[in-house]
Design a binder for these strands. Structure first.
Lengths: 232, 232
DNA sequence: AGCATGATTGAACACGCGTTTAATATTGAA
DNA sequence: TTCAATATTAAACGCGTGTTCAATCATGCT
């Protein structure tokens, strides 16, 4: 295991220092590991093994595990925005192409993991997505037109959350519905989602006691009290 | 800090061994810590400090950190089902009361953390909630009646996911909307959720190219390809 | 050729983790 | 009182982690 890239082989005259090739391999391996197991459970040693290098080299190139994470964040963010710009105008197909490319599916997994962790890293993903949904509401999306609200931002945030939810709970849905994989789970859910988006689910509501136009009774929504900071 | 419950005080003749009082204090502290930081980031030492005991005692009473987690799971599950049975018939008020009781809000946070972790522990919560939503669809909920589908189970699963989503992303919503806390976030979202549940969001759809009744074009839903197992 | 710079590695360091262990304190039973 | 059993603790163990370090290798520049 010592003869590696001898000089007599086809070595394409790479730079003396700064090996971008190895650094890219480490970054790709890190994105794979992070998207599969999340940031905390992923180890530097695991990334190094997946990239075929030593753990020390990972730190040498990216400073720290946190630095590597930031580099992964930037790469995924730029790749997804580039992919979206590339497919501008296609609208619906952009979503479809997102899942044909296996690299993109990994990036989406990375995004979801980042979104659910309590760090700040995932926030720009969410903000960016809310902006995207808001543009869909205003300009339409793939021929669909949407009911508008006075509070477009709040409406967009709600719809973004709704759109992200099935992917976040895909494992729980698989186990509950007995579906084999994420694709079949989404196929099972798709008609119900379309029904919801098209006509809602409430067939008849109880007669309101208060004046019309005021605060409406809340639907059976599940909320929570977050205990993020230390309550000491 | 050594004089604790001397025998001359009002000691209600508790058992010689088996101190249920201390064990309960450890369990409560563990639920607090787990609900605040998740299972993995929570340390046995942290729980012990919060309960005012030594780390070894935590292991002594519950065998291991995993055993303590199971005990917490059982306690939270029983407490929530008991609370629900207690409020049977109230329907809407049951949801409201869930958030008036600070203990219950902690339990809900615990539930959400468990739901999003890749372990099996949260599955029964999700299954239970889907069953509850399914009963709402069939029997109605607080005077509301719902549009039915042939695939009631799939419909219930979808609605359960939708109902859980805002709470799961409450932090991201807070940052995006600039809301101060979860309560104001949900207040901001409530009318949009009611709009969605009542009449949907799609005002007009593009004319379908295929035969009606067949596979409908998917709405702009965000999905993902899960890379759970090791792909080696 | 000779040097400087960076890539790369194996070993070790320092730390925090869950857990174990030996010892002490406490308490009901005899 | 004496004994056995449990509660409780302080200390340490074993392990995995992110990171550091000294050494070696490879390559561009002069």
């Amino acid at each position: 295991m010592r003869s590696k890239t001898p000089k007599d082989s086809a070595a394409p005259t790479r730079a003396p220092n700064s090996s971008p090739e190895t650094a890219k391999r480490i970054l790709d391996a890190a994105i794979d590991e992070f998207s599969a197991h999340g940031f905390q459970k992923t180890t530097v040693r695991g990334i190094a093994a997946a990239a075929g290098v030593s753990p020390g080299l990972v730190i040498h190139h990216f400073g720290s595990k946190e630095g590597l994470r930031t580099a992964c964040d930037d790469h995924v963010f730029e790749a997804i925005t580039a992919k979206k710009a590339e497919n501008a105008g296609y609208r619906v197909m952009a979503v479809q192409m997102m899942f044909d490319d296996p690299t993109m599916t990994t990036y989406v997994d990375y995004l979801l993991k980042s979104l659910l962790e309590p760090t700040e890293h995932g926030q720009r993903y969410f903000d960016h997505y809310v902006d995207l949904v808001e543009s869909y509401i205003v300009e339409g999306f793939a021929g669909y037109e949407f009911r508008r609200s006075e509070d477009t931002r709040g409406q967009a945030a709600m719809l973004a959350v709704m759109a992200l939810a099935p992917a976040m709970l895909s494992r729980r849905l698989e186990a509950n519905l007995g579906t084999a994989d994420v694709a079949s789970t989404m196929t099972r859910l798709a008609p119900h989602l379309l029904d919801l988006y098209t006509g809602g689910v409430i067939a008849s509501a109880p007669e309101p006691a208060g004046p019309p136009g005021g605060a409406a009774p809340t639907p059976p929504t599940f909320s929570a009290h977050e205990t993020g900071e230390d309550p000491s």
